[in-house]
Design a binder for these strands. Structure first.
Lengths: 199, 199
DNA sequence: CCGGTTTAATAACGATCATTACGAAAAAGC
DNA sequence: GCTTTTTCGTAATGATCGTTATTAAACCGG
């Protein structure tokens, strides 16, 4: 019973995601969000809760819609392929949409006011989760002899993630896809191999 | 003639710099800034201008006070030493002060509202200036045979900068100095040499 | 000691922030 | 058709945003 919703909740969430992606959490006003969604303010509140809840939902959606390449990467046979897949797909995602470059995990919030601390922490956890998956994959690679025994899985995972974060900053600053791909190739040229020529 | 200023302008600017360093440009309210400086609002305005002008002054001060390691690095004899000096000193700077980790060039603004666009652009230019110096230094290294002819100076400079940016994000997220130093060592593990073993 | 000038401090400015009453409109059950 | 329930849209909430009038106080030159 009751009146039906007149707007598409999924489309509204996608619109909010684009705004957060471009302006970050604190940089996005509720007016920005409602205008992008084409929906009045109370409608967004009743559908998603407050701004923080909306951001968390947008972050979930971001994972589902744009980060499928990470589980894909983890299943590749060698650690080098895993890293290459993640890095090149990150470059693609960071430069694919001209009106919201970079990535939500970085643009969302790096620093901010004390009010934004919960969201900042959520993004820290979000990034840490990806890094932990990567570290575990690299540990497996060591066990399989794909990475040398001397390799540090946690440092290698942090290295790959640092690159994605840094390239996200650069993409947001307007760096071209070609430039970032050259960065990835430079990074991969330092990759350790199973015969322990690296390190 | 006229009344004397009762507060130390230099100390006030240092205090403002620390606030911007921790909370970024938009995350820092004028109340935050005045409280940190121990000065009433109109006093900050008369001394520095508006918030944007104050940020730009803080950024200049940041360069002078904390980035001396960059010109230092550029004078080292080899490209590898240049990169190592920059990366290790960046880690040190990013983790040295527990109450404002990371770096102002990143924390200041990556994404934000349209109002903050001038400051965001100023930070883009700021980072680009450092990267350009690095690229020129690497081009010189190629001419000197210190880097192989096949090396791409611009990609190498972007690679080093991407790492500093990414590690700044990680430092702000609470990564330890030791972890970040391991990231740097991973990055430096197979730096291209003059005998073109790299790339 | 007094007139001119600069700073200090209180308090206010309009604008925007996130959030929500409130009443009209629309759909489902009886 | 009437009641109930949910949503919609207008408009308002108090708080905080960056920025300044305005007034009182402190200093210098005369």
């Amino acid at each position: 019973m009751g009146r039906h919703r007149e707007f598409d909740v999924e489309k509204a969430l996608d619109a909010a995601l684009c705004v957060f992606w471009r302006k970050g959490y604190e940089g996005s006003s509720y007016t920005d969000l409602t205008e992008a969604a084409g929906v009045e303010r109370p409608a967004l509140y009743s559908a998603f809760g407050n701004k923080e809840a909306l951001f968390r939902l947008a972050l979930d959606r971001y994972s589902e819609r744009f980060l499928h390449y990470i589980p894909e990467a983890l299943q590749l046979p060698t650690a080098r392929q895993v890293a290459a897949h993640i890095l090149f797909n990150a470059v693609d995602l960071n430069t694919r949409y001209p009106d919201h470059t970079g990535c939500l995990g970085i643009n969302g919030a790096v620093a901010g006011s004390d009010d934004a601390e919960p969201v900042r922490q959520a993004l820290i956890d979000f990034r840490a989760a990806g890094q932990a998956q990567l570290r575990e994959r690299f540990e497996r690679a060591k066990a399989e002899g794909d990475l040398p025994e001397t390799a540090k899985a946690d440092a290698l995972a942090a290295f790959v993630m640092a690159l994605t974060h840094g390239m996200a900053v650069q993409a947001k600053a307007g760096f071209s896809r070609e430039m970032l791909e050259a960065v990835v190739e430079q990074a991969l040229s330092t990759w350790p191999t199973g015969r322990s020529t690296g390190a």
